[in-house]
Design a protein around this nucleic acid. Structure first.
Lengths: 218, 218
DNA sequence: GGCGCAACATTCTCGGTAGTATGTTTATCG
DNA sequence: CGATAAACATACTACCGAGAATGTTGCGCC
């Protein structure tokens, strides 16, 4: 009875923290939306609060600064990427297929988490020049390191493919950059349309990945 | 004698306009630098003036607003691109080679005019939401149209190559986006280093173009 | 049933920036 | 040489947004 009542009237500690995390996540979601729509600097804290029908107070209760929110968005975006390619990495398949599958997975995540991916594109290193505190610099360094780590996943497969002979690139570094550019470019031209189905996105992802890996030549 | 003196002591009207254009260009150059370093909104008019060892007064004498400066930078960036690929377009060569040469030329211009190309990447359509006046919207529309026109140059060659059978892409639209993403991505990772020679840039451009056109597959 | 604390809302301040208004110098032209 | 205008510099205003300070509410717990 106590247990039952608890779930209805009072709140267990786990429920409380769950609600906190939820509120936290809502703010990050709203921030990603605002950053995408108005840009990093033009999006104000009030804008973010407005999306949630709340005020600045709520936002500043969960985040120390606007930069902290941006970091949270960035971190989340990277996590989405890692989660998307991880299952592909773990699979055992030829390098040619694997790099194409990874590219397709990345393309999917670009479309599926568009607000996040667009946000991190609008700032990255350049955002926060000078005005950054020491602790913020550390977070920034961590995020950049994470991005390098992520891109290394691709370069590793490229290198393996070259050594196996299944892939042929004159320069792994440049090939990796090429891939990332082509894939991340999605956020610049892909537009969400209501009538688009999941299959449509999958098709775009596959076609893009195929074009990158197999090239344009007949 | 008068003619000779004129060129030394007094200034002919053409000299005057030339100097005006020069001052104009200096401001645009400085703006591109600032935009690249600090971002579009964080770069202030004073920053731009500082680069020129001047003050706001000079900038506002030549440009009505900050947006107008951005437009000038954008326009110039596009012009650099057009000028770079124009000679390639006019040449007669197989589509496979042509698209690769165009890609290499574009890559070159990305590196050679980095401040401009980075600037236009940081704003484009999203920059100026709402606060834009009607006349500014028109300029913006013109710039976007120009960009489409530029990208059409690539799509045209792609289509021709497909119809000829020398190129094989499942989707010209996506292939074009892929190319642009891979090429424009250069501004994100390319860093100018003093020891870099012209040959180094050329090598990067060629390798990148080759990788895009021929793909990663062996 | 009041105490404390978390989760907000409200209000204010302060720094910074686009844009303006006005002063000052330099050069062209009658 | 004197007038006139371009090409700036200087000084000022008006506004906006981040962050802080403070006030308010509601839930959990002794």
């Amino acid at each position: 009875m106590v247990g039952k009542m608890q779930s209805q009237t009072v709140e267990s500690p786990t429920d409380a923290t769950a609600r906190k995390i939820d509120s936290h996540q809502q703010i990050v979601d709203a921030a990603a939306q605002c950053f995408m729509l108005k840009g990093l600097e033009k999006a104000t804290i009030d804008d973010i609060a407005d999306v949630l029908d709340a005020t600045k107070g709520r936002v500043y209760h969960h985040f120390r600064s606007k930069n902290a929110i941006y970091f949270a968005v960035h971190r989340q975006a990277m996590q989405y990427c890692f989660e998307a390619v991880k299952p592909v990495i773990e699979q055992s398949m030829p390098c040619t297929e694997k790099i194409e599958a990874m590219a397709a997975a990345h393309a999917r995540v670009m479309m599926d988490t568009l607000p996040y991916q667009r946000s991190i594109r609008l700032g990255v290193e350049m955002y926060l020049r000078g005005s950054t505190t020491e602790s913020e610099r550390e977070v920034l360094a961590e995020l950049i390191a994470q991005r390098n780590e992520y891109e290394d996943l691709y370069r590793d497969v490229l290198r393996k493919g070259v050594s196996e002979g299944s892939l042929s690139v004159p320069n792994v570094e440049i090939a990796g950059r090429m891939m990332m550019g082509a894939l991340n470019g999605l956020v610049d031209w892909y537009r969400v349309r209501p009538e688009q189905t999941d299959a449509d996105r999958e098709d775009i992802a596959r076609t893009l990945a195929r074009t990158i890996v197999r090239g344009l030549k007949a």
